[in-house]
Nucleic acid binder design. Structure first.
Lengths: 195, 195
DNA sequence: AAGATAGGTCTACAGTCGTAGACATACCTG
DNA sequence: CAGGTATGTCTACGACTGTAGACCTATCTT
């Protein structure tokens, strides 16, 4: 790691934390299948076996990495009326290709191909993100509208960062924010007007 | 494959087609990393080497599978005014877990983790889907709004089929269609009203 | 019927993967 | 200072991956 890689002081908690951080980084960048245990171990400055010794298996390591990554509150909005604009602004800002590369949505999108990883993430969503977002919405079908908002967020992250589609990466942020604000607004109302 | 697996009559075109079909199925079900060349070959009733002999490499096979999968027009809408409702209805119907398991969005979502696969799919989107959807929208920023619609579609497919989130899989189809129709409607207008 | 060629298979290699058991060493306690 | 234990490493295995070259054989042509 550092230039003078003196063997880190023996501290189980700190080492475990270093491995978990490295795992989040690796899984977010390369996905569940693309990240190897040896790679995670090397980034944490330890051996591959120590990873399994602390976390049991790659699958359990992934589960804990997902849980940690999803636990961090991505967007906090207090006023329900201002939520669409705030959410849209945050989404546009954070999906900027030059933005910070560590976030739960990238981890999710790049690991969705593996069935076991998908299960783990579904449970984590129900445990963290879904519940948090549902609380911000009002109405009887808040749960499903919250997951629709989640779908939109994930979809934008997919196209803009993972696939890096030209029209979205090069779009004007202000106009993009307007569009997305309208989309989220449409999902904020309990039931669409059957005019 | 069949019970009496008599060695298929030697026909280069037919064999190539069988391999390509098997590849689309495998890549859609397991993603780029999850599907192996031997698995594809076995499903087509041939040897792994023949796959590479016809397609050069796994990567080129994937590129051709993506191109074929994306070329099939998923939703055809003629009337721009009715487009949101039609698109929403088709999306809700086709993302039903009991629906047909072969479609470009699943292929895309489950392969997005691999960087090379992501590049290939980005090009294929620009070549097929993006252009097709852009033609259905009007206004100066039709391109970026088309990709936002694509983002919504992909996001719903991700949550409803790949992750199989409970609130979306169990949601009432009619109400879901209403919500999504409103979302797409918001993206159909050239520029949101700065009221 | 005999040869030519397109169509397919066999064997194998070099690499990576996740993981298990035995072994070594740094640190704390007496 | 001596011992014990927590902490970390080494070696290795079996399975799987994509792919290359040599080889076989069914089919068509003459």
């Amino acid at each position: 790691m550092s230039v003078t890689d003196q063997p880190r002081r023996r501290d189980a908690a700190a080492t475990r934390e270093a491995i978990l951080r490295a795992a989040i980084e690796a899984f977010t960048r390369a996905g569940y299948d693309g990240a190897g245990v040896r790679e995670v171990a090397a980034a944490a400055g330890v051996t591959a076996m120590l990873v399994n010794r602390y976390f049991g298996s790659k699958e359990q390591l992934f589960a804990e990495a997902v849980d940690r990554s999803f636990a961090a509150p991505t967007v906090v909005g207090a006023d329900p009326a201002a939520l669409p604009a705030q959410l849209a602004a945050a989404l546009v800002a954070r999906t900027d290709p030059a933005s910070e590369p560590l976030n739960p949505y990238l981890l999710m999108l790049r690991s969705a191909g593996n069935p076991r990883a998908a299960e783990i993430m579904r449970e984590a969503i129900g445990r963290h993100v879904g519940r948090r977002l549902t609380g911000l919405l009002t109405g009887p079908d808040a749960g499903e509208r919250a997951e629709l908002v989640l779908s939109v967020i994930a979809g934008v992250w997919l196209m803009r960062d993972v696939l890096a589609t030209p029209a979205l990466t090069g779009a004007d942020p202000g106009r993009l924010k307007e569009h997305l604000s309208g989309v989220i607004q449409a999902l904020s109302r309990p039931s669409p007007d059957p005019a």
